[in-house]
Amino acid sequence: MNELLLIVSIAGSRVAMPAAAVESVVELDTLIPVPRAPAHLAGLSALRSRVLTVIDCQRSLELGATDLSDGNIHEAAVVELDGHNYALTVDAVEDVVEALSEPAAIRAAMGEGWERVSLGMVETEEGPLLLVDVAALIAGPGAEARAA
């Protein structure tokens, strides 16, 4: 069976995440900011009795900021990485599709932010989509600078 992909839109672009990595999709409730944390770390939220670290994907990609305090409902994909739960803010969650190919390198020039989180391009029934690396999205900008 081919890998299932979750299609979401971030900063106006449709991208795919490995569906297996995504535990659930939630609507974010109250958000507790974390002072002094990196900018893309929007804050903490609670999912039932678990603490979610909320990642603002737009900021992580350096494509603007999501206003999470505007009173609107914000959807987020919940993923687990190294034992911690994260909620990735997305504009919308669209669909789950089957991957029709292995990810292939994209040779066209992408935006810097996208470049950082890209795992390559996958073919789907809905056309080619960028497969994003959830871990890189969580690490956010500056992760490479810190590592270097």
Binding site: I32, L44, A46, V51, T53, G83, H84
Partner: peptide, 25 residues
């Protein structure tokens, strides 16, 4: 334990949930 990015600030020892269910650092 909080997420690594939170711990990296050096300010926090962890997270917890208050009685009303909201996270507290």
């Amino acid at each position: 334990p909080a997420a690594p990015a939170v711990m990296a600030t050096g300010l926090y020892a962890g997270t917890t949930l208050a009685d009303d269910g909201s996270p507290i650092l």
